[in-house]
Each structure stands twice: as C-alpha cells, then as structure tokens.
C-alpha cells in the first residue's frame, strides 16, 4: 500500500523550507511594483536546490521525487510565498521530465525559469496558438508565472514549443489571487523550438499540477485552521475566550477532521504521481475534488471567526481566501473533477 506518511527526509525538507519562508516572505510587496520575490526564489531554487526535486541527478536535479515537491507546495501554501514554483518546478518540469530536453537541466538548477503557456483553469490540452515553420502566432490568457519566466512552453497542434519569453508580448492581468500574478501572452510570429508532442506532455503537466495543487490547498487549510485556533484562544468576548464556545469548538473540530482527510488525499495524489501509479488520474481528480472545498471552507472560517478584523485588508486572511478560491478554479473545479472521476470509476451520468 501507498505510504501516506511523511518520511524523515520529507520532514527535514519541510523544516528547512519553512524556516526560510518564515524569515523571508513579505506579503506587503504584493501591491508593489514587483510582487514576485525573485531573490527569495533564487535562494529556494538555486541555493537550496529545490527547483528540480523530481529531476534525476543525471539531468541536473535533486534526484528526489514529486513527494518532496508536494511538501514544498504545502509550505508555499502556508506562506503564500510569491515565487514561480508552480510554473517552473511543477508545470514546466513535469512537461519536460523524460524528454531529455536541455532546458530541464537549467530549470532544475534554478538558472532559468519557465512555465506552461495554458490558462491556469485548463484541465486538458487545447490549442489557441498556431505554429508554422517554427514560428508561433496566437494568444493565451491567464498564464501563471509567465510574467517572470525566461521561457514559455507553448502547446500547438504541431507540438510543444519552447519560446523565449522576451520574444512575446506579456500583459499583466489583475488576478483575483493577488499573491499569484497571471499574464496574458501574445505571440506575434515568435520563434519556437520544438520540444515534443504537445498532447501527452501537456496532459502530464496538468495532471501534475492538479495532483500537487492539492498539497498547496492543504498548506492553506492548515494555516487557516492553526491561525484561527490560536486567535479564538486569545480573543475574548463576554469575558470568555471565543474558543470556549461550543459552537465554535465543533466547527473547528469538523474543520480539523476535513483537514485530516485532505492530508491523506493530497499525500495519496503526490505518491501516485511520484510512483507513476496507474491510479494517478483518479488520485489527481480526487485530490482536486476534495482539497479545494476544504481549503475554501478553512479560509472562510478563518475570515468569519476573526470577526471584524478578518474582513479587513490588514489581516492576511483575505489573501488565503483569495488563493484558496483561485486554486479551486485552477486545473479544473471540484465539480469538473467529480465529472472526470465519474468516467474513471465507471459511474456514468
């Protein structure tokens, strides 16, 4: 049976990532001119070597697995660190793993960054860009981490192409999740280098995205639960701790149960991805269908149980709510994944 626990190595990895992020994440930069923290990214990616965890050492990576990547995703969810991990270390890396493409080595070493040029909401490969003789034209909306990427992996009917981001027109989008900037990308006859057949590579990247985003949702849910529990222990109303009221206790107990489930489900998805288990499609859709509602519920309870202060911009709860909600629409909503699951487990509509 799949191992759903965290190994000692994974716990050590978590400790080092958390200690870095505790020190360095500064969410006040999100409304500034440079919301993405590339300095923090360099430390995480290059200095600590976490950019290419699932990439074999022979290909310049850390030779770990997607299980460890999932632990990093949990910590990124917990901290909302504005770094391009999802685009480069999950989507682009998953697309390139196994292709022997030279770009993989640069990504794994943290020398360059890339992302997959699809709308963040995508669940399956679709083409809005055309390629003729290695020259690409078209527009892709709502691309994650494209604003800071060096290279864009652009799917077309003729294949997946690597395009230098500088050769494209990138228009920043006001994203609902302030901590995860999106970009509209227009290719006006940009030159591209063929990487491989787009269908399977994009599908693999999107499955990896779905499977691992569940770990980010888990991290968000855990932050929200922990923060709320701490708050209700200190906040007093009617001369009693708010956390002493049974209705609050029961809601937080139910939330803890849900988070406990989300942890098992997210671990299962990460393990299936790491071991290329035949159950991976089920595991990934299950993870998206289950963990997103939990993360949203946790963020909503965090806002509600902080009362007035939770509704303000000055408390970070709103950023977690926005991230959880946007994640719930990323790589397919829970509703869509339930429909996908129905087909996978033979429960037709």
């Amino acid at each position: 049976m799949t191992d759903l626990l965290y190994s000692e190595v994974e716990e050590e990895l978590r400790a080092s990532v958390r200690s870095l992020l505790d020190d360095r994440v500064d969410l006040s930069r999100l409304e500034g001119p440079e919301p993405v923290d590339l300095k923090l990214w360099r430390t995480l990616a290059a200095d600590l070597g976490f950019a290419g965890l699932p990439v074999p050492e022979s290909a310049g990576g850390a030779g770990a697995s997607w299980r460890e990547t999932a632990v990093v995703m949990e910590e990124l969810g917990r901290s909302l660190a504005p770094v391009p991990f999802l685009g480069t270390s999950v989507l682009a890396t998953a697309a390139l793993l196994g292709t022997e493409d030279p770009l993989l080595d640069a990504l794994a070493a943290g020398r360059r960054t890339a992302t997959l040029a699809v709308p963040l909401s995508a669940t399956d490969p679709r083409w809005t860009v055309t390629a003729a003789d290695g020259v690409l034209d078209g527009t892709i909306t709502s691309v994650v981490d494209a604003g800071t990427a060096d290279v864009l992996l652009v799917p077309t009917a003729a294949g997946l192409f690597a395009v230098e981001a500088a050769d494209t027109v990138r228009t920043p989008v006001v994203s609902f999740d302030l901590s995860r900037p999106l970009t509209d990308v227009t290719l006006g006859s940009a030159p591209g280098r063929l990487v491989g057949d787009a269908g399977p590579l994009v599908a693999r990247a999107l499955t990896a995205g779905a499977a691992l985003l569940a770990s980010e949702q888990l991290g968000i849910a855990e932050w929200c639960l922990t923060t709320t529990v701490e708050y209700v222990k200190t906040r007093r109303q009617f001369a009693r701790q708010v956390g002493s009221y049974q209705a609050i206790k029961h809601r937080l107990a139910d939330l803890w149960v849900s988070v406990t489930q989300a942890r098992a489900v997210a671990r299962y998805a990460a393990d299936c991805l790491a071991t290329d288990d035949p159950d991976l499609p089920v595991a990934a859709s299950l993870a998206q269908a289950f963990c997103s509602p939990v993360a949203m519920k946790a963020a909503e309870e965090c806002v509600q149980l902080h009362g007035g202060i939770g509704f303000t911009w000055e408390h970070p709860a709103h950023l977690y709510l926005k991230r959880a909600r946007s994640n719930a629409a990323s790589f397919g909503s829970a509703t869509r994944h339930r429909a996908l699951l129905a087909a996978l487990v033979d429960l037709p509509a």
Binding site: M1, A264, V265, L286, F290, R338, A349
Partner: peptide
C-alpha cells in the same frame, strides 16, 4: 434510476467516502 442531480450527489459522496477511506489508511499507518 439515474438523474443528473443524483449523479452529482453520488459523486460528492463517492469523493467523501474515498477521502475517508484514505484517511483511515493513513491513520492505521500512524
């Protein structure tokens, strides 16, 4: 016996049941 409304209800419970099952597996591993 099928209908679209019941289908989503079934899938929600299927997801919840499988999540609970995996939670049980993880609990027993612990």
């Amino acid at each position: 016996l099928r209908s679209p409304g019941l289908h989503d209800a079934l899938m929600r419970l299927w997801v919840d049941a499988e999540a609970a099952r995996l939670t049980g597996v993880r609990l027993r591993q612990q």
